[in-house]
């Protein structure tokens, strides 16, 4: 039974880690679904949000403000930073690029990623800053059934809760609000949306701000896990396979993709890694994503395009 116990532990920790990837992937889906832009700078936004949060928290605490109040203030400050970022990106980068093709927009977000990384580190510093928003200890479950029990991190559970809240909020936003419907129109066709009077710049600001808030949520969890540091931007690369497995446009897809990648990665590392060498976590998710795409080129939950001529 030890084998099954450890399998279960690996599976559960993988699934929970996957939810954390989904947190980052949600930011991409939001922007792609709403503006047709593939936002490479999502990772940089997580870094910026995390740095703003952790440095503001430190500042407010050093002023003698109690932790809870300081945390609220710091969250508000970081949200304001993300709002400013959204405004600047819309005003100076995406606004002038309306109606350009996907590739140009994608490249411009790589440019934006460089700018954000530079600005974030210049303004808030470039060291590793520990964050302790969430508990980092673990529960041990099922000791009666398995020797040693199953280890579950409380942080991962928090990540799951936050992801669930975000998904519900985003779904409501897209389906039930006027802005949400306008967003979908803009994603379909910039020009057509403009011509029926949808204020595209306002829409883009809203959606980038929302993605900024998602980045803030991701930063609070990942920052607790790893400390806020530059390498957090590499999360972007971790979230991409999640994104293509789920489909660029699907919110549930981002969650499902995260679960698949998280579980697959951990299981592969333990069982396959023993055969062909360690560190396969590095590429396994991508090969998994590639295989999914070979079967379903639009991802598991993506919308299928009918080719016409």
């Amino acid at each position: 039974m030890a084998g099954f116990g450890s399998f279960l532990e690996v599976l559960i920790s993988g699934l929970l880690a996957g939810v954390l990837y989904s947190l980052v992937a949600l930011g991409y889906v939001l922007i792609y679904k709403a503006s047709g832009v593939f936002n490479y700078s999502q990772g940089a936004m997580v870094l910026l949000a995390g740095l703003a949060l952790v440095r503001a928290l430190g500042f407010f605490e050093s002023q003698g403000i109690p932790y809870a109040a300081a945390l609220v203030l710091a969250l508000l400050f970081a949200a304001a930073v993300m709002a400013l970022t959204a405004w600047i990106i819309e005003r100076f980068i995406l606004g002038p690029l309306v109606n350009q093709n996907e590739l140009t927009l994608f490249m411009s977000t790589i440019g934006a990623a460089f700018i954000l990384e530079g600005v974030a580190q210049m303004a808030f510093g470039s060291e590793v800053y520990p964050l302790r928003m969430f508990p980092k200890d673990a529960w041990i479950l099922g000791e009666a059934y398995f020797p040693g029990g199953i280890l579950i991190n409380k942080l991962d559970i928090w990540g799951g809760v936050i992801a669930a809240v975000l998904v519900a909020a985003i779904a409501l936003f897209f389906q039930r609000t006027k802005t949400g419907r306008a967003l979908r129109a803009v994603a379909d066709d910039h020009l057509a949306a403009q011509s029926v009077g949808i204020p595209i710049s306002w829409i883009w600001f809203v959606v980038w701000f929302a993605a900024g808030l998602v980045a803030l949520a991701a930063a609070s969890v990942w920052g607790t896990k790893l400390g806020v540091q530059f390498s957090i931007t590499f999360l972007a690369l971790k979230a991409l396979p999640v994104l293509i497995i789920g489909g660029f446009t699907s919110v549930p897809g981002a969650i499902a993709g995260g679960l698949i990648v998280g579980a697959g990665e951990k299981l592969a590392e333990i069982y396959l890694g023993a055969l062909i060498g360690g560190g396969i976590e590095y590429w396994f998710a991508y090969v998994l994503a590639l295989s999914v795409l070979m079967v379903r080129p639009q991802g598991l939950f993506g919308e299928r395009l009918i080719e016409r001529i």
């Binding site: 593939f38 996907e102 994608f106 690369l237 991409l240 396979p241 994104l243 293509i244 660029f248 060498g277 360690g278 560190g279 396969i280 590095y282 590429w283 991508y286 090969v287 994503a289 590639l290 795409l293 070979m294 080129p297 639009q298 991802g299």
Partner: peptide, 28 residues
């Protein structure tokens, strides 16, 4: 894969080559 996968999906999928070979030359 480019025969079935198009556009941005393909470009992300090509990252599989990038990370696989990074790993291969580092570990093997």
């Amino acid at each position: 894969p480019s025969l079935r996968i198009k556009g941005l999906y393909l470009s992300v999928a090509t990252l599989a080559a990038q990370f696989f070979f990074d790993w291969l030359f580092l570990r093997v």
